[in-house]
Simulated assay, not measured.
Amino acid sequence: MTQTPFQECLAKFRELAGLTQQQLADRSRTSHSSVNRWKGGSGTPKKDNVALLDEALGAQGALLAAWRRTTEGTGLPEWARDLVSIERSARHLTLVTPALVPGYLQSSEVSRGVFRTAHPLATAEDLARLVKLRTERLGELSDLEVIAVFPVAAVSGLPASLRRTQAAYLLEWVETGRVAVHLVPEGTILLGPTSPLMLFRLRTGELAVVSDHADGNVIHEEPTHDRLSSQATSALAASLPLALSLDVLRTLT
């Protein structure tokens, strides 16, 4: 009998942790009979119990994602599914990041470095999957136009080989006509956004504002839009014009 993604993930992490079913039940404050039933596929736990199992096994969310794939057909949490809907409904994105090159515009080499730092225990296969998802996303959103604002140090501060490939990658995107890059010059600090800020203009004309955090994206309510939009405007005003930004990128290739 084919195992569900949840069963496979539960078995994998229980084996890695070296726990018996009873030990797992004790650590997760569930019953042995329940763990046995979930292991055998005769039942699927509720989300609260999955969170307890995930914590007990140190799965760092992997068990929750497998549970979502089993019960809902997708491993994405609700906030990510909402973001996907926003992306697909958007025609324009203003993107401000205070430190790094925005994820949509990271080269595969830089993206791999970011994910390796964020997920030090990830396998090579997991890293390859994450990099593929990130680097192909903007290509999939073929109608989306982007204005990206971020510090020149996000590129110039990279090791030489990464700096050259990242700068060339950005220039390639600019040449498509879909992306405009505005670099915040050295010595200027973005005092507004403390995390990546994304302003999506939807095809309906509505605005969706999303900020990116270590534990996921936050979709902001309409009353905050004016304040957050002004932060993006200030960041754009502090950056170099497109032509000068491109001149800087060319010196880094």
Rank of each mutant, 00 (worst) to 15 (best):
A214T: 13
T233D: 09
D226T: 15
S230T: 15
E222Y: 04
Q231R: 05
G43A: 15
H220L: 10
L130S: 09
G177S: 12
S195K: 06
L16K: 11
S85Q: 14
P193T: 08
Q166L: 09
Y169C: 10
R137W: 10
S89P: 02
G73E: 10
C9A: 15
G41C: 05
R203G: 15
L244H: 10
P45F: 04
A154V: 10
A11C: 11
D26H: 10
K39W: 11
Y104D: 09
L242G: 01
V131Y: 02
L199G: 01
Q23N: 14
A118W: 07
V96E: 01
E125F: 09
R250C: 10
G75T: 06
P185A: 11
L240Y: 07
L138I: 11
D54L: 05
L19R: 04
T165I: 13
S34R: 07
S89N: 11
L242P: 00
T194K: 10
Q60P: 00
E175Y: 05
V209C: 15
G113D: 08
P193Y: 04
D48S: 12
T251D: 12
H213Y: 11
S85A: 14
L105N: 03
W79E: 06
T20C: 11
E221H: 02
T97G: 10
R250D: 13
H182E: 07
F115D: 02
Q21W: 07
S85F: 09
A118H: 04
I147V: 15
L246C: 15
V110C: 14
